[in-house]
Amino acid sequence: MNEHDLPDERPLDESTRARMRAELIAATAQPEPRRTSWVAPVAASVAMLVVVGTTGALLAFGGGDKPGGAEVGPAANSADNMPPDEQTSAGAGSEQATTSSPEPGAERGESTAADPRSPLPPVTAEDPSTCAADVRSHLGEAREVAAIDYDGGRASLWYAGPVWVVCDTWAAEADGGSTTLIGARKVDSPVDKSTFQISENHSNNSSQFFAAGPAIPGVAAIVYTFPDGHVAEAEMTDQMWLMTYLPTEGPLASGRAPSKPVTVKVTHDGGQVDDYTLEWGLDTCAQVNHGC
């Protein structure tokens, strides 16, 4: 396997294309209140329901391997420009006629006025994911034992038997996305570099760095130094520690790959200091619940 060993491209099948186009027409026909980041996908879902209601099972189950259900198409070269709609077979064309997709070529300046669809019903916001649900989906009957609230989020420590996980809500609260889980390690795991690994949590507009874990016996301070010079000292409680950093300017804020690693200085009660070096991409990862 190499970077070019990818599955062949597939064109959208005609029924899907017609449905999407109808969704777009429906969406663009609506007056536009200010929307938050979750509205677009929700509006898409609602619009899809409207369209599905009008096109019915014809599109969803039409004809097995016949057009309309034709999921496998010829591969196309990704570097080429997409050809205009030229894949319509007779069957697909007849199915399309049952949709409210506008006539190609007749849409410029007319599609909105010609669309008789009534306004979309009110939409309900998709709830952001919660730590209670997400942790338990990973660890079963986990229970929360401690938490630290901070500006923009909340990090909570959970145990399921001897295994701990920290759940962070920053990304979920930023734009209704997912919580981030870090850890899933045994409480008696040895302290090493991986103990201090960083999760890079993304929202639509920014990225936060986050590291946490249960309190480490004998450790008095944990200090991270980032490539941009920012120093983030972990907050320590009797039960857990938490480091967060939300860069607002500079290369880390713009997502550029840093050339220098992150250093972690761990100071023990007796004054002994351990240093760890975290390499980007090796000891950091995009949202640890992605598998780091």
Binding site: M20, S78, M82, R108, S111
Partner: peptide, 17 residues
């Protein structure tokens, strides 16, 4: 909206893949 429709026709497959 028509311009969006035409961009969709032109690039939906590229976006999809």
């Amino acid at each position: 909206p028509a311009a969006l429709g035409e961009l969709f026709d032109r690039y939906a497959d590229r976006v999809h893949n």
